[in-house]
Design a protein around this nucleic acid. Structure first.
Lengths: 194, 194
DNA sequence: CCGCGTTGCCTAAAGCTCTTAGGCAAACGC
DNA sequence: GCGTTTGCCTAAGAGCTTTAGGCAACGCGG
């Protein structure tokens, strides 16, 4: 028997492709072994467990997505940057649904710190810089963007908008309008209305 | 051997409790059979498959949540109603994470139509009525609320906000401010800026 | 009160999954 | 060319889902 040349990295890359084809939840040692024409047990020299495999796919996807965000943001600021940020996430989720799902895998603290997660956070903050929010509010805004982007993408991927009009694309455009508007006219903490 | 009195309904209810304790993904015939002190095969007289079981839990959770929303909205309108709507969803997700996850299970078209899903949509539209948006925009607003609420809840449940300040509660309050503000001053479709 | 039928839970079994342990042979360094 | 490393193998155990068929407990009619 000739050797196929398995590697933790090759397994993670193949796992990412597999995720896009059959769903992240179905990325398993068994399926991957079938792909490589190899017995399941052989994977365990390269990967500690099924969970370890999925974590590697998640890290790969987070990295890849962070690179795309960086490229998308290059040379843009303000509203342009906001739209680019959202579009990169949404386009990535649509073209690589399994990889996108992988980015949602909860990671333990240490792994999360080593991941591209902090890069994502930093880039979102960079986009917000142009709106000149002061400190507690900028953090709230980071969370607003994260929530809205991820929420929309999750609903769209789950088919929540299919077969109903107007199309998801239009709602997405309007939502970006609303976010830009909100960030521009960031409402003050409401006090007692006279 | 005395009979335990299994029923599709009792299984679904037990499955819902199980979901909150060990996670919706771990709601399986095996685990449920252990709970009832019964052999696994016995469940298959009441439930067609593991998937069928999970669907029943999802329908139960959607119903329960719709009832809570209806109760929360009673007698409120405008901003009060918006906050009540969001709070019911968030509180439910925090106190019943497994059931909340169940509500996210993709259902086939027919099952979705029979579920409490349409009731949820109708109640969101009822909340928006007070903001007097005209038609395509009200739909966009439904999607904005759904996205932001679900996105925030997903991030919070995944631990995205833990151990960082300010706390999730504050961001949630600010985000409700922003949503109310956006709905009140709904931005026009941007044309060519002079 | 008792038999009878229904129905509920059982045992048995097949096929899938993940995971660990130990073996053989291919590829690499010298 | 030889030895060591190491990559993929076979073997095996435990858990999960699902189907098929059997026995006995419950509930109804007499």
């Amino acid at each position: 028997m000739s050797r196929v040349g398995l590697t933790a990295d090759r397994l993670a890359r193949a796992g990412a492709e597999l995720a896009d084809e059959i769903g992240f939840d179905n990325v398993t040692p068994s399926e991957l072994a079938r792909r490589f024409g190899v017995k399941v047990a052989s994977l365990y020299s390269h990967v500690r467990s099924a969970h370890d495999l999925r974590v590697r796919v998640a890290l790969l996807a987070l990295d890849e997505l962070a690179d795309l965000v960086a490229a998308g943001l290059a040379g843009r600021s303000g509203r342009d940057a906001l739209e680019a940020l959202g579009d990169v996430y949404r386009d990535y989720a649509r073209s690589h649904p399994g990889r996108y799902a992988a980015t949602r895998l909860p990671l333990d603290h240490e792994t999360a710190a080593r991941s591209a997660g902090p890069r994502h956070a930093a880039m979102t903050r960079a986009v917000l810089r142009a709106y000149h929010l002061s400190e507690p509010d900028e953090t709230h805004a980071v969370r607003l963007l994260g929530s809205t982007f991820h929420g929309f993408i999750a609903l769209e991927l789950a088919g929540g908008f299919s077969h109903s009009s107007p199309g998801a694309r239009e709602s997405w455009a309007r939502i970006l309008d609303v976010l830009d508007f909100s960030l521009t006219h960031w409402p003050p903490t409401p006090g007692n209305t006279p």
